[in-house]
Design a protein around this nucleic acid. Structure first.
Length: 449
RNA sequence: GGCGCGGUGGCGGAGUGGCUACGCAGCGGCCUGCAAAGCCGUGUACACCGGUUCAACUCCGGUCCGCGCCUCCA
């Protein structure tokens, strides 16, 4: 079966046919680096990580190029730095490192290219100049604005027409706009704001232009896949399409647009005012990154996801079950399960893929495919021993291994003496410390709960 | 108000016009000194109301509920 993907552009699932199978190219909107990534930021990272892995498996690891941008110039960054007094460069660098660190904990592979907006200003300026030259943009009061009415297909991606947009606008329209739907490509910077010299004075780019300039530079004028959160469809991606298409004389910008669904937390929508957003950084103190990853993958990427700590516990138990199977039957090197592959090829159906993972774990001869299939999903790559002892997630505080072994030894003697009261109290003591004992044929083993 | 997405058993969550996934929890059993883990068995759910059909959870229409976006806010 070919890979099928739901294309937002057409609102249908369709076969994925790359422009060049030797060079499959995808671009995903990355973070604005002013704060720790929350679970809503993590979802697209994990979802498109699955796609990246699937494409590499299908077309070969050297034939896929994955770019994810770092937005390091933005008004929120400016505002945050002003609040805290931290230098902008320090804030963005620190946040970017934290982001990579957190996403790494979630088992997300590092994209091939991670372009920073501030390192691509020249490309943006060139693109803006081209847009002005071709009549798709104009200068007004030190701003450069994109002229929406110059692009007939505006609104196609998000499925709206301009009348609707104007009717629904609830934001004050800047007086210098020729058309209320026009959006900013370049804006002036005050003395204390980051800015770059340009033909239109010292300023900084608008939000959307960076993705257009950076994708062009690294992936070309037309590429295969562009991904991001559903909330980016409008205006961000709509505007990207308009800019890039117009800057490229009408050439197609992207063939497949993919969008992941939104995230809720504990049954409520995530919002800063409710203070109910979980940062990945905080969650990692409580749960293994792999459990967070699985909690995200247990829901299909296009569906709404209610992220809960209960769900995380559950994901951890799922992993316990799979790791247990790996421990019992160490996997040989093998290809991923065909069923898991097929599930992923069907628009990244990770929940269905998990069903097959449990099937593989269910004894039988197919268990050796578990490890290779897990790799495709970005799970199960730790040593099972480390997983159960908490070493895979750095959660190995409290009792030391020797402490535990000593207590187990004591309990063993008690059991030989048939002093079950003592034996059970030792086990309870360990359990209170989060250590669960399992008496097997080969003696007693332990794991962290 | 406009556009879009979703509502499946106690929970999570796939899928299909007719043959009742899967995981967790629960219950019963085997095993165990007792547990834990494992194994076996067990649960006829698909928001509501109409319609189409021999047959709908699955198709169509409407209603209700939840959520996202509606331009400088990622």
């Amino acid at each position: 079966m070919p890979i099928q993907l739901f294309n937002t552009l057409k609102r249908i699932k369709e076969d994925f046919v790359p422009i060049d199978p030797e060079r499959v190219r995808m671009y995903v909107c990355g973070p604005t680096v002013y704060d720790f990534a929350h679970i809503g930021n993590a979802r697209p990272v994990v979802a498109f990580d699955i796609l990246y892995r699937l494409l590499r498996e299908t077309y070969g690891v050297d034939h896929v190029i994955y770019a994810r941008n770092i937005t390091d110039v933005d008004d929120k960054i400016i505002a945050r730095a002003a609040e805290s007094g931290e230098k902008i460069g320090d804030l963005t660098q620190r946040t970017e490192l934290a982001f990579l660190d957190d996403m790494g904990s979630l088992g997300a592979m590092v994209p091939d290219i991670q372009p920073r907006a501030t390192e691509h200003i020249a490309g943006m300026v060139t693109m803006i100049a081209d847009l002005i030259k071709s009549g798709h943009a104009y200068v007004a009061e030190d701003h450069v604005l994109f002229n929406v009415s110059s692009y007939d297909d505006y609104g196609h991606l998000s499925g709206r027409n301009r009348d609707e947009m104007i009717a629904g606008a609830r934001v004050e329209i800047a007086p210098y706009k020729q058309d209320p739907a026009d959006f900013v490509l370049w804006k002036p910077s005050a003395e204390d704001q980051p800015g770059w010299d340009s033909p239109w004075g010292r300023g900084r780019p608008g939000w959307h232009i960076e993705c257009s300039a950076m994708s062009e530079k690294h992936l070309g004028r037309t590429f295969d896949i562009h991904g991001g959160g559903q909330d980016l469809i409008f205006p961000h991606h709509e505007n990207e399409v308009a800019q890039s298409t117009c800057a490229h004389g009408g050439e197609t910008f992207v063939n497949y647009w993919l969008h992941n669904g939104y995230v809720m937390v504990e049954g409520e929508k995530m919002s800063k005012s409710l203070g109910n957003f979980y940062t990945v950084h905080d969650l990692l103190d409580e749960f293994p990154g792999e459990a967070i990853r699985l909690a995200l993958l247990k829901t299909h990427y296009r569906k709404p996801l209610d992220f809960t700590k209960g769900g995380l516990q559950n994901a951890k138990m799922d992993l316990d079950k799979l790791y247990r199977a790996l421990k019992e039957t160490p996997a040989q090197s093998s290809a991923p399960s065909n069923k898991v592959m097929e599930a992923l090829k069907d628009d990244l159906n990770t929940p269905l893929a998990m069903t097959y993972m449990f099937e593989l774990a269910q004894g039988g001869g197919a268990r050796d495919q578990l490890l290779a299939s897990g790799k495709l999903l970005g799970i199960l790559q730790h040593d099972p021993e480390d997983w159960f002892k908490g070493k895979a997630s750095g959660d190995d505080g409290g009792l030391s291994d020797t402490d535990i072994d000593d207590l187990i030894e004591k309990r063993k003697q008690a059991r030989v003496d048939k002093d079950f009261a003592l034996s059970d109290s030792l086990r309870d003591e360990l359990q209170n410390q989060g250590i669960i004992l399992e008496d097997g044929a080969q003696g007693t083993t332990w794991r962290r709960s």
